[in-house]
Structure formats: structure tokens, C-alpha cells
Amino acid sequence: MALEAFSLAGKIALVTGGGTGIGLGISKALIDAGAQVVITGRRETVLQEAVKELGDQAFYRVNDITDKTAIPQLVKDIETNIGPIDILVNNAGIHHKALAQDTSDFDFERIIQTNLLSVFSLTRECANYMLERKSGSIIMISSMAGLFGIDKVVAYSVSKTALTGLVNTLVTEYSKSNVRVNAIAPGWIESNMFLNAINQDEKRKQQITNRIAMDHFGKPEDIGNAAVFLSSEAARYITGVILPVDGGATVNF
């Protein structure tokens, strides 16, 4: 059956920042497709609640992705005690909203450290195992802010734009070993934090809704379904793609 190509049965995925929002939506979708999922984050109580919701195919590890010295042990722990990491979803990230002139060096560097440098460190470590096995799927969670200009998010935008360069280069180095590297660029996705923020700024809300070609915001599972596809055999000849999941916002005028 053709649908078997979309199955992730027997696969193990690592999803950073998997306890809430888009990360949780991705984790649910991967599990629904048959994978076991390890979620990471800094807050153990959040991870514990997420695992309860996700069920017995989910595991968690408390980890601060910016602590690069802890990354090798994190990956070794998962590889040894849970199983080989077939899928890596680099979802963890932080945001900073300010005009460029009001963004300090500290804030800029903090965003780059979390959203880019830590992503590279974890990807490199997981790839050590994937390349040896000659199999793997690596997904970066980028953003439409990495595809077109949005005001007041200069550091975030730069960090997400840089992921495109990271994807492109890793494709040239990893493809011969059958390790695929892609990115998903979410649009405006529903979450409590997002909805609360835009409901307090009617002008910004109107600006956002005007930009989206479709008539509604996305949901975390929309990103999760894209991650399932890119991680499955159905996408076995797809690498180096930056996939917008944004209701047409990237191309809409």
C-alpha cells in the first residue's frame, strides 16, 4: 500500500522543545505515524505533562540546548538507552521582539546561540551516528521570518535565515550517506501565547490576517504532518527543501 511509505513504525525521533506548542504538535504527529519520540526541554514538569499526553511511545530528557557541553552525553544517552536516533527535529528556539535599534548585542547573541549555534552542535552530534548508519532525517524548524522581512524580529529573522545556509551545506556533505536535511518554515500557528499576544494588538492582528492567503491560522499538527512526510520513505528523494507551512503567507500580497 502506498500509505505504508508514510509510516514511521520502528523509528526513533528526537524533538527539541517538544513539550509545548509546535514541538508538541510535531511529537504527536510522529507518534501517530508509528515513531517513538524523545522530547527535550528545560522544565521537567512541562515534559512530564507532555509525556502523559503523548502516551507510552514518548520519553523525555531535561536538557538546555544552549549547554553545548551536555549535547554529546544527551545523544549518547538516547542512543544507548532508548535506541538509534533516526529523526532529529530541531524545534527549540526563542524569540525577541524589538526594533533593530533597540536590540542589544546581548539579546542578538542570545537568539543566535539558541536558534542557530545550538542547532548546529546537536545536528553535528546526531549526524555522527546517522552518517555511520547511512540513514537519517534531520529537520530544522525555520520560519517565514527567514523567507521575507518582518519588522521587530531582527535577531530571530537572522537566526532562521541562517538555517537555510546550514541546510544547503549539510545536504552537500550528508547526502551520499543517505542522511537527508530539510527545513519547515511555519507561518502563524495557533498557540495560547500567540493568540493572547495578537488579541491585545488589533492593528498587528489585522496586518497578520491580511498577509495570510487562507482564512485562518495554522495549527501545531499542520507542522507535525509536514514533519511526518519529510521523515518518511515517501520523501526519500527530498533533501535541501525549505517547506513553508503558512497558508500562503509567503507568496500572498
Rank of each mutant, 00 (worst) to 15 (best):
T172Q: 15
I212Q: 06
Q48F: 04
A58Y: 08
Q207H: 12
N168W: 04
G146M: 03
K11T: 01
V241W: 07
Q206F: 07
L116R: 01
I26T: 03
I184R: 05
G248W: 14
E132S: 09
R180E: 04
V158N: 01
Y129P: 02
A185L: 15
I208K: 10
E233I: 14
D222A: 06
K68C: 02
G146C: 05
T123E: 03
V38E: 04
T45K: 04
N90K: 05
Q36H: 13
D102G: 03
Y156V: 01
A92I: 06
N115I: 02
Q48P: 09
D246H: 13
R180W: 06
K134L: 09
D246I: 10
S143I: 09
A35Q: 14
G21K: 11
I26S: 04
V119L: 10
A9K: 15
I150S: 08
S104I: 12
G136M: 08
A92F: 05
I65T: 03
G17A: 06
V251L: 15
Y156F: 03
G165W: 01
E49K: 15
G93P: 04
T169D: 06
L147A: 01
A13Q: 07
E53W: 06
P84S: 15
T209R: 12
N91F: 04
G83E: 07
V38T: 11
M130S: 07
V171C: 08
G83S: 08
R204K: 14
H95T: 12
Q207A: 11
N225R: 15
A5R: 14
F229A: 07
K134H: 11
T40Y: 13
I238R: 08
K203C: 00
I138D: 06
T161D: 02
Q113F: 00
A98N: 08
I12S: 01
R133S: 11
L170S: 06
T169R: 12
G136C: 09
K160C: 05
V153N: 00
H96I: 12
N63C: 13
V15G: 03
F6H: 05
I189C: 02
D86Y: 09
D222F: 09
L24C: 06
L14R: 02
S232H: 13
K76S: 13
D32A: 15
K203L: 12
S142G: 10
A58S: 10
T40E: 10
A235P: 00
E221D: 14
S191D: 08
C126M: 04
L230T: 07
S191G: 08
D105E: 14
D215P: 00
I78L: 02
T80L: 14
A70W: 06
D107P: 01
R124F: 10
P220T: 10
R180Q: 05
I139P: 04
L163N: 03
A2V: 10
I242H: 01
Y174N: 05
G17D: 03
Y174F: 15
E125P: 01
A213I: 10
S157H: 11
T209I: 11
T40L: 15
L116K: 06
N192C: 00
I26E: 06
S191K: 09
R211I: 08
A2K: 11
V38C: 05
G18C: 07
